[in-house]
């Protein structure tokens, strides 16, 4: 298989930077929300919405679209940034995040916002939903694919492993999931709160095809997504090793920024860092 071109990688990295900026601005305006986990998965979601997924912002319910389920619903700002920059709704709506009457609820709500496939926010439930969509698409003989993003703290939920069994049992090879393995959850380091390793071996033991990649290496993300499409009879799990708060030096690896929004001063500094990055 042809590897992704350098030009595409450069383009996607720029797009990821744009997403990060929108996330930070949105959260600063809202003055609450989840910064760290939105930034850690920004490269993955960029690769999906701006390269891999077949979707149509003008027709969010297009029958043959690929689907994305944000199982870690607290990364809502990331999803909203991807949807807004894709053209699902006006970018100005991002200013209303978490405000009364806004379609941009604190956690994604499918009834209020086009492009959100299903409401999420309570952890552990997205993979089961993704399985159901994948099974439905197969029944209809559609070649559409289903993508699902889980947090690493999230895999402490028992339902995730029920869904892991189901996806393998029903050979849902049109399903590709990610674990955003940033190593931190609200109460601290994942492996101090509740030991989650060995993540790769666990998914392999549950019958999945597993890739273990650096979740900030755009070429690695795209190549893993391409390879996942060629796998037959097995769902694919991409364990993405990431850094919480990725992209902003003073947020990186800091557990307190799991659920804390930047201050206006922090935003200024952060945007500057992103602008200077790669220059």
């Amino acid at each position: 298989m042809a590897k992704v071109s350098q030009a595409t990688v450069i383009e996607l990295k720029e797009k990821a930077k744009e997403l990060r900026k929108e996330i930070l601005k949105m959260l600063t305006t809202a003055q609450s929300g989840h910064t760290g986990g939105s930034l850690s998965a920004a490269d993955i979601v960029t690769a999906l919405y701006f390269h891999k997924m077949r979707h149509n912002p003008k027709d969010p319910k297009w029958r043959e679209r690929d689907r994305f389920i944000l199982s870690k619903g607290h990364a809502a700002p990331l999803l909203y940034a991807a949807l807004a920059l894709s053209g699902y709704f006006s970018k100005s709506l991002m200013k209303t995040l978490r405000k009364l009457g806004s379609p941009l609820q604190g956690h994604p709500c499918s009834r209020t916002l086009p492009g959100v496939e299903i409401s999420t926010g309570s952890l552990g439930q997205g993979l089961s939903i993704a399985n159901g969509i994948a099974a439905g698409l197969k029944l209809d003989g559609l070649g559409s694919r289903v993508y699902c993003l889980l947090g690493d703290g999230e895999i402490q939920e028992g339902q995730v492993w029920e869904a892991a069994m189901t996806a393998a049992h029903y050979k849902l090879d049109n399903l590709c999931a990610f674990v955003d393995n940033n190593g931190l959850q609200i109460d601290g380091h994942c492996c101090d709160v509740m030991y989650i390793e060995p993540i790769v071996k666990k998914w392999e033991a549950f019958g999945w095809n597993v890739f273990d990649i650096n979740g900030h290496d755009m070429a690695a993300i795209v190549n893993a997504l391409d390879q996942a499409e060629t796998v037959r009879d097995k769902p694919t799990m991409i364990v993405a090793r990431t850094v919480k708060g990725k992209g902003i030096s003073f947020f990186e690896g800091k557990v307190q920024y799991h659920g804390m929004a930047p201050t206006p001063e922090e935003l200024k500094k952060a945007l500057k860092e992103l602008d200077e990055d790669g220059k």
Binding site: R67, L127, N131, G132, G136, L139, D140, Q159, M165
Partner: peptide, 28 residues
């Protein structure tokens, strides 16, 4: 059999799976 899903002893997953199927226009 092709329209029947035994999810095993996993009620939570069953409800999620049913939800996903409904999102593709099936009536679960």
């Amino acid at each position: 059999p092709e329209r029947f899903f035994n999810i095993g002893v996993a009620e939570q997953d069953m409800i999620g799976m049913a939800s996903g199927l409904s999102l593709t226009g099936k009536l679960p």
